[in-house]
Computed example of a mutant assay.
Amino acid sequence: MTTSAITVKTETTVRRLVFIRLLHEQGIRQSEQPRPLSATAILSFHDAVEHFLCLSVEHLKIMDMPIFTPFEHYWKKVKVKENRCRAGTPWAASTS
């Protein structure tokens, strides 16, 4: 991978992380609203977690994830990858 490809990948990852943080902060603001307006907070939190899990799976290069994956399956796959990377850092798998 070339340096420019790494920079683009890093830029994209940072932008996605910024979006995830925006969703999380939006959820916090929505949760502070009076009822029933606060009810929408759960949707923003759900979206933030879902986007973070998708980004994590891509970062760890877990390729066998179906398009519609329940949350609990993400954790199982990430745990398996984590166990394989025990010898080094969790990020060691994404640099190979």
Rank of each mutant, 00 (worst) to 15 (best):
Q26N: 01
H59V: 10
G27A: 00
I62H: 11
K77R: 00
L60S: 06
Q33I: 11
L60P: 13
S31K: 02
S38Q: 06
P36K: 12
L60T: 06
K76A: 08
K76W: 08
S56H: 00
L53G: 15
S38E: 02
Q30C: 03
L22Y: 14
M63F: 04
F45C: 09
A39T: 01
L53N: 01
P70Q: 08
F52I: 09
K77S: 05
L37G: 12
Q33P: 05
Y74Q: 15
L23R: 04
L37N: 04
I28F: 07
D47R: 05
M63N: 15
E58N: 14
E50W: 01
E32A: 06
R29E: 04
F52Y: 06
Q33L: 09
G27D: 10
T69C: 05
E32L: 15
K61Q: 12
P66K: 09
L23Y: 03
M65H: 08
S56P: 12
H46S: 01
D47C: 05
S38L: 10
R35V: 04
D64C: 00
M63E: 09
E72H: 07
K77F: 05
V80R: 08
Q30K: 01
V78L: 02
A39D: 05
H73Q: 08
F68V: 04
V78C: 10
K79W: 13
M65T: 01
A48M: 13
M65C: 07
L37F: 06
Y74K: 02
P34S: 09
F52D: 05
H46Y: 09
S31L: 11
H24W: 15
I20P: 00
S31F: 11
C54P: 07
E50I: 03
T69Q: 11
R35M: 14
H59E: 04
I28M: 09
A48E: 07
L22C: 10
Q33T: 00
L60H: 11
H73V: 15
R21A: 06
S38P: 08
R21K: 13
